[in-house]
Each structure stands twice: as structure tokens, then as C-alpha cells.
């Protein structure tokens, strides 16, 4: 019993903060979806009105689809580039640490700063990419002002910033693989490609599993780069669910509706991570 008590005492501070700033907001969120009222005005219980509205509001579906679209653009690209870089890093010795450091460096930056820096890459007048475009085609491209280009461009920011983190993670995974297996495979005459597809990829499966789930949870909340680069435009083509949540609280002063949107986001995250877990488990 006394041992139990010590264990609980050690857990108390964490559980306290956990309860007040995670569990309580979670419960409050649920009740807020049945309420209306502004930041200043008192809350009124309105039943399922907010929920009914989410089903009619076309922007809800659009933001959810935009968010998923963003994940589908960003995550696979980040993972493939990171895997290639991890393999490259794994096979060089001279300059290994220097490359690792430089490739990791963008990851340190807040996504907001990364997005701001990208304006200097994309800007129609002085963006590096557009200077190159002008030199080649004579015409600059309005990356962020174009409905079909805006979202891929937002995803590009995440690719630039995110690659370093995943490169290092995959590299660590590769280096922790049992070396004997590779020596055995080499003796069996397996070339680098066969070794990669028959050994490295299957053995890294647990790493991929956690990485994909983690990346999905983080990227489904995309907000910072959208807020600073497009503010959801043009024509809501980059409006993410989190962007809509933020706007319903501060621009539209509808926290109840925002709470309902938040609940939608939670559901989307849960469904997608559950699907991923299922897909990974199924193949085992």
C-alpha cells in the first residue's frame, strides 16, 4: 500500500495538468458542440443545431477534404525523400555529420517561419523560383493565387521543413537493423536493390507504422502555413479544418460551431489513424 502511494505521488503533477488541460477541455468540447454564444456573450444550449449545420455547410466537407488532400500530398513525398536521403547518408562516411546537420537544419524552424521564408521563394516579383521561371518562360507563376497550385505549394513547405526530421528517424532505424542479416544477404548474392526491398523495408515496418500515424496526426492539424500564406484562399482551396476552427472562434465569433468543427477534426483523426493501424496489422 505504501508503495502504491509513492507511485501515485510521483504521478500526481502530470495527472493534474493532464486532467485540467487535456481531459477537461475534451469534456468541455463535447458540451460546447450543443451550445452557442460568442466570446463575450453567455453560452446558450441549442441542442443539435451546430451538428445539423455541419452536415449542410459545404465548407465543412471542403475543409476536411482539403486537409486530407494536404496529407496525401505532403506525407508520401516527405517519406520517400527522407528514405532516399537516409539511405544516402547511410552509405557515405566523409561528410556524414555535416550533411546530416544541414539536412536537419530546416526542421528546427517553426513551420510559420518556414512558410514566411517560402514567400521569398514563391513571390511573383522576387521569389527565387519565379526568378528562375521568368528566366525560362518569361512569365512568373502565382503559386499561391492559383486554385490548383496553392495546396501543393503549402504541402511543399511541409516537405522542405519535414524531410530532415524523418531522414534522421529513418537513418536511426536503418542503423539499428541487425547487421548480420545484411552480411548474410550479401553472401547470398543479394544486390543493393534486393537488400533494400527484401530486408530494409520489411524490417523498418514498425518504424514506418509509428511514423505514418504520427505524421498523420500532426499534419491533419495543418494551420500555420495556411494562415500566413493563403488564409484559406483562393476560394477556400487551402482552407483546412483547423483554419475553419480558428476562424469560427475569432472571425465569426461562433465558438459553439467551432467546437463542433473541432469534434469533426477529432473524428477524422481517429478514423484515419484507426484505418492505418488496421492496414498495418492486416498485412502482418
Amino acid at each position: 500500500m505504501r508503495r502504491n502511494l509513492t507511485a501515485y505521488l510521483f504521478l500526481t503533477p502530470v495527472l493534474l495538468f493532464f486532467g485540467v488541460f487535456l481531459i477537461w477541455p475534451g469534456i468541455t468540447l463535447f458540451f460546447q458542440t450543443f451550445q452557442t454564444g460568442g466570446i463575450m456573450s453567455p453560452a446558450i444550449v441549442v441542442g443539435t443545431k451546430n451538428w445539423e449545420r455541419t452536415f449542410i455547410d459545404p465548407l465543412v466537407l471542403k475543409t476536411v477534404w482539403n486537409t486530407i488532400r494536404y496529407c496525401l500530398m505532403a506525407i508520401p513525398v516527405v517519406f520517400i525523400i527522407a528514405m532516399v536521403l537516409a539511405l544516402a547518408l547511410n552509405s557515405v562516411r566523409i561528410g556524414h555529420t555535416a550533411f546530416k546537420t544541414i539536412i536537419y537544419y530546416p526542421t528546427l524552424q517553426p513551420i510559420l517561419i518556414a512558410a514566411l521564408m517560402f514567400t521569398f521563394v514563391l513571390h511573383q516579383d522576387f521569389g527565387v523560383l519565379n526568378i528562375i521561371m521568368r528566366a525560362i518562360t518569361g512569365n512568373p507563376v502565382n503559386f499561391l493565387g492559383n486554385e490548383s497550385l496553392a495546396m501543393p505549394t503549402i504541402a511543399l513547405v511541409e516537405v522542405w521543413k519535414g524531410v530532415g526530421f524523418w531522414t534522421l528517424l529513418f537513418l536511426a532505424g536503418i542503423q539499428n537493423l541487425p547487421r548480420d542479416l545484411y552480411h548474410a544477404a550479401e553472401l547470398d548474392g543479394a544486390g543493393p536493390f534486393r537488400r533494400f526491398f527484401q530486408l530494409t523495408l520489411p524490417l523498418l515496418k514498425p518504424t514506418f507504422f509509428f511514423s505514418i500515424i504520427f505524421a498523420t496526426i500532426v499534419n491533419l492539424q495543418v494551420f500555420d502555413s495556411i494562415f500566413i500564406l493563403t488564409d484559406g484562399g483562393p476560394f477556400h482551396s487551402t482552407a483546412s479544418t483547423t483554419w475553419y476552427i480558428y476562424r469560427s472562434l475569432f472571425t465569426f465569433n461562433e465558438p459553439g460551431y467551432g467546437a463542433t468543427l473541432s469534434f469533426v477534426l477529432v473524428i477524422v483523426v481517429l478514423i484515419l489513424t484507426a484505418l492505418q493501424s488496421f492496414a498495418f496489422r492486416d498485412r502482418n
Binding site: 487535456l22 500515424i213 491533419l220 483547423t242 467546437a259 473541432s262
Partner: peptide
């Protein structure tokens, strides 16, 4: 797995 962004309104 809880998306923190979903909690900003109650928080």
C-alpha cells in the same frame, strides 16, 4: 493521438 488543435476552443 488527440489533435491539440481541436482543443483550442474549450481551452
Amino acid at each position: 493521438a488527440i489533435p491539440v488543435a481541436a482543443l483550442i476552443i474549450p481551452l
